[in-house]
Design a protein around this nucleic acid. Sequence first.
DNA 1: GGACATGGTTCGACCATACAACCATCTGGT
DNA 2: ACCAGATGGTTGTATGGTCGAACCATGTCC
Lengths: 143, 143
Amino acid sequence: MSDEASDLQEAVARFVRVFGLHQPDRTPCGTPVPTSEAHALGELAHEGELRQVELVQRLRLEKSTTSRIVTQLVRRGWAERSAAPDDGRGVLVRLTPQGHQAAQNLAAARRARFGAALERIPAGERDAVLRALALLTEAVDEP
Amino acid sequence: MSDEASDLQEAVARFVRVFGLHQPDRTPCGTPVPTSEAHALGELAHEGELRQVELVQRLRLEKSTTSRIVTQLVRRGWAERSAAPDDGRGVLVRLTPQGHQAAQNLAAARRARFGAALERIPAGERDAVLRALALLTEAVDEP
DNA sequence: GGACATGGTTCGACCATACAACCATCTGGT
DNA sequence: ACCAGATGGTTGTATGGTCGAACCATGTCC
């Protein structure tokens, strides 16, 4: 009595636990940075600077939550807020040099963890795993 | 400059956000049950009853956290604690009839969400996605 | 210019986790 | 039989996390 939906649900649940996605105060890759800040840092490092509202959309969080995260980043000296040039309401968030450094450290830690995981996956399967994950993300995304 | 480890990391990050794994007080499938309780409920429903220490291992949480979760379940009338028959220290956690009912409701919600997702995945790929997820979980598991 | 939408901040309520201290019980060695 | 150490649980403390509502400023559209 195990349809595919149940199997998928169970697989996701196991992944979440095994990968340690529970811990809010530590990235699954071991760095002592809160996960939400790590997500934001990743996006900012990718783009250099971002409107706060852009961050809201990418992180899929409420604007209140995003505001608080940005405040944390600023407090750490990793980001700066400035007025958006084209919209008096908006806020532009930009990474500081230390922020870029922190992002690089995080990226290195991630690469270490995921690199090790990849090595435990048969080389021929790696592409398939990546594609499958993307496919699943797409499918699970709500309209 | 995009190695596979980075791609994988990004894919996981996107999945986490898109699937809404952030929300602690709501299951990603829409039911108003805290996610940690949902995990515990799932394991208990699967086994009927479980030693609390078993739950610790399956959920990959600290014993203190697990203890609190069980207390919540008890408070909701979904589980009962009793002394373990073979070990004076141990606690046996058993689902009540209402607990089983709650577990079934959760399972139905999950099935709805994951079933819909599966339908958006080409039929020929579904097995591959499941296998890939299992493979990834295995690979990401720390020794 | 007034109604409504959009971008942000702050506040309150709730949930999640770990670690340490503490207690009870079990186990193994002497 | 006894004591030391391991194991199972509970409670307290400190962090971190998310949302939704209330409130303000600025933009937009008619």
